[in-house]
Amino acid sequence: MIDRADEITRFIETAGWKTARRLALAGDASPRRYERLILGVKRAVLMDAPPARGEDTRRFTRMARWLHAKGYSAPAILTEDHDAGLVLVEDLGDGLFARLMARQHGCEASLYGSAIDFLADLHGRPTPPFVAPLDAALLAELVELTPKWYLAGIGVKANEAALRVPDIVADLYRSLADGRLVTSLRDFHAENLIWLPDRTGVARVGLLDFQDAVAAHPAYDLVSLLQDARRDVSVATEAEMVRAYISKTGVQADTFVPVYALLGAQRALRIVGVFARLCLHFGKAHYLGYLPRVWRYLERNLTHPALTPLRDAVRDGLPEPTPDRIGRIQDQCGQYPTP
């Protein structure tokens, strides 16, 4: 069997970057790794996505090319070897929205406003034929992680109320959503967006991590952006951006807002389960630090009157992630062998 490091070295050499300097970049919750390659004035980013760990780089390159063809700033594909799970892409730089907002006070509204402009433009286009729908059944399935992993982590047996949560999510979605689906990049948030001031219009928003794109309700990526697990977004900013999206797209606020709240609750519930699993199974404890913020989003969404059945089930079946409960999960970090 070829050593992974040797496989990567051969790929880089074949691509013409043999003498490039290699710098590790921050990864994400997946098995993927990233490196920046520097060769004189040239730069590129290496994606290492091992097929043996369930990764499929074809999904990334297919979506990247679709976005690129529409005039959006997905990284250009430079070289690819899908059998090896290696792709070399354009380096869009270091201007992550999250980093800029942390360093430059007062740029939050303009950056989020540009992201809203991008979503409004994207959602006005037909979805690509190769993306699957994120329907009621799949929304429910994604929430099943929460009673399975979160309750196990805090030492609480799965109970009837918690086990009802996925079905309630599906039922509410069927009753509230109007059936319209748009292209959703799914992980559309400040750490996956790069500001490109030298470009124009919606191309100023650089895009990362879109290989899991689906056809979803228009509110899905808006929630992902404005209820960010990794950083605080003020209630005022969130409300302003939701209003801007409604104004730009012409959706009906009275039908859009309840689905926005539902998808916000669904995402928060899913993230609680995902982050518990990342710690318990994969040993990634730092994700637990985001749980209190995610729970606050959940509670805020559940105040919408249309979500009363879901609020009641969550209240009865899923205890809040208090510091003690988070500590119990952390004490078992990496000790659950079953994924």
Rank of each mutant, 00 (worst) to 15 (best):
D6M: 13
E7D: 15
T19Y: 05
L25R: 08
G27N: 09
P31K: 08
V41N: 12
A44Q: 03
D48Y: 03
P51M: 02
R58F: 15
H68Y: 05
G71S: 04
S73E: 06
A74Y: 05
A76K: 15
T79I: 10
A84N: 05
D91H: 01
D91W: 05
L100E: 10
A102S: 12
G106K: 01
E108D: 14
A109I: 12
Y112K: 00
F118K: 03
D121F: 11
T127R: 13
F130Y: 10
L139S: 00
E141S: 12
E141W: 03
L145V: 08
T146M: 13
G155L: 11
V156R: 08
A161Y: 06
L163P: 00
V165H: 11
D167V: 07
D167E: 15
V169D: 06
R174Y: 00
D178T: 07
F188R: 07
F188G: 00
L193V: 08
L196M: 05
P197N: 03
R204W: 09
R204Q: 15
G206T: 09
L208P: 01
L208W: 00
A215S: 15
A219V: 04
Y220Q: 00
L222G: 12
V223E: 05
Q227Y: 04
D232F: 10
V233M: 05
V233P: 08
S234G: 10
V235A: 15
A236I: 05
M241T: 02
G250A: 02
Y260I: 07
R267M: 15
R270M: 04
R270V: 00
R270N: 09
V274S: 04
F275V: 10
R277T: 01
L278P: 03
L280R: 00
L280S: 06
A285T: 11
G289Q: 10
L291P: 06
P292A: 02
E299K: 12
A306H: 04
L310I: 14
L310F: 13
P319V: 12
P323L: 13
D324H: 14
R328F: 14
G334L: 09
